[in-house]
Design a protein around this nucleic acid. Structure first.
Lengths: 213, 213
DNA sequence: ACGCTTGTAGTCAAACTTGACTAGCAGTGC
DNA sequence: GCACTGCTAGTCAAGTTTGACTACAAGCGT
């Protein structure tokens, strides 16, 4: 699964109530366009789809305050909240070799209690270990690794990246166990969305216009 | 872009002429289902689409020799060959943080001359370096990295994985420069597809039937 | 006063992906 | 001899993603 649902649910939830354009702006603020398929079309589609599935509640509101077509505001329902937590846990726990889901989950990890976050990350490491073992065993032919020729490089790539993923995960666990960040139930949560009138300090993915390149 | 077109073009090309099921089998033989979205539906879709676009030539052949519906055989056209090479070069050269494309390209890299492969891989490293620089500069706020909170971990993840990707690439370059593998114009190419009657030694992703688990 | 660009908010068709399904033939057990 | 399973080969509907497009208002320059 892609990360889009998790991202959108998380963004709407942080606002309490948000319209598509706000979500779009948050995702851009988070840099999500750099590491996930968070394009306008996908975002609006996800909002509509999840509204249809009862994960979000849609409020058709008046024509927008500042030009453009009328906008719809969304709110996360109880069911949506459950889905959000399920997606979040799953994204952290399971190694699926697509980092967009993990990236999104890292952005929301502080919504979980600290111990649970650590436990899920440890599950992740175990998953990576199992995957690595299965793959290396499976693609190690009897006639020695040379018989695979350059094809062995593909496995090499994946194993390399799995190892690197495990290492990063261990680092994160260490930082969390060392007391970094503020998790659920530990006081003022980190505010990660832009207020209604706030401007995005990180512009539009490109630097200032009129720049070189 | 996904890796499917490159994979399918490459598979058909290796056979000279192949029907969908053969391609499907090759991709499975290569383990592509483990690291890409190579599902039957996608494969058949890609074949049809590329035939429509003139990259493949479709031959409607007689009902299959061994049961099942009639099958269509495909051949890579001149245009398809160009597209194949373009996709291949692009996949090796550009760092797009989705490893399926790179994995596929690694499987076909020996279709290029050795020097070109090395040159493209060096371009890749340079691309990673640039990307890394842009990202670290872009997401380093003036108030110090702490102001990002746990969000900084996302960047950390990506930088970690970019570094690991660069390291793997350097390793591959070294092996290639050291004379490993057989590249274009260096003699008998590595045969990476299953012959018509050959069985896949790597079964169906699961071990022998009747096995435990 | 006029056109031009920028920002807001979202739609849409076309392409792609997914997972379940169809349908014929071959062997196997009983 | 016939029900069952597995293999061959592929289709299909539903869902998702993409990239280009629309439409409106406000500001800006000349």
């Amino acid at each position: 699964m892609s990360a889009i649902r998790l991202l959108v649910l998380g963004a709407v939830r942080m606002h309490g109530r948000a319209h598509g354009y706000q979500v779009r702006n948050d995702l851009e603020y988070w840099g999500a366009h750099e590491w996930s398929n968070a394009k306008p079309g996908s975002i609006y589609h996800a909002l509509k789809q999840m509204a249809k599935q009862g994960l979000l509640l849609a409020h058709e509101t008046a024509p927008s305050t500042a030009g453009g077509p009328p906008r719809t505001e969304y709110e996360v329902t109880e069911k949506g909240l459950e889905e959000y937590r399920a997606l979040l846990r799953d994204a952290i726990r399971s190694y699926d070799r697509n980092m967009d889901v993990l990236s999104a989950a890292v952005g929301f990890v502080v919504d979980l209690p600290r111990e649970e976050a650590v436990a899920l990350l440890k599950e992740r490491i175990e998953g990576i270990r199992e995957w690595r073992e299965a793959v290396t065993e499976y693609y190690t032919p009897e006639e020695g690794p040379e018989s695979l020729g350059h094809i062995g490089e593909i496995m090499n790539l994946w194993v390399h990246s799995a190892d690197s993923g495990a290492e990063w995960t261990r680092g994160l666990i260490a930082r969390i166990e060392g007391g970094a960040y503020t998790f659920a139930g530990e006081g003022d949560p980190f505010v990660g969305v832009l207020a209604d009138d706030e401007e995005n300090p990180y512009a539009t993915g490109v630097r200032d216009p009129g720049d070189d390149e």
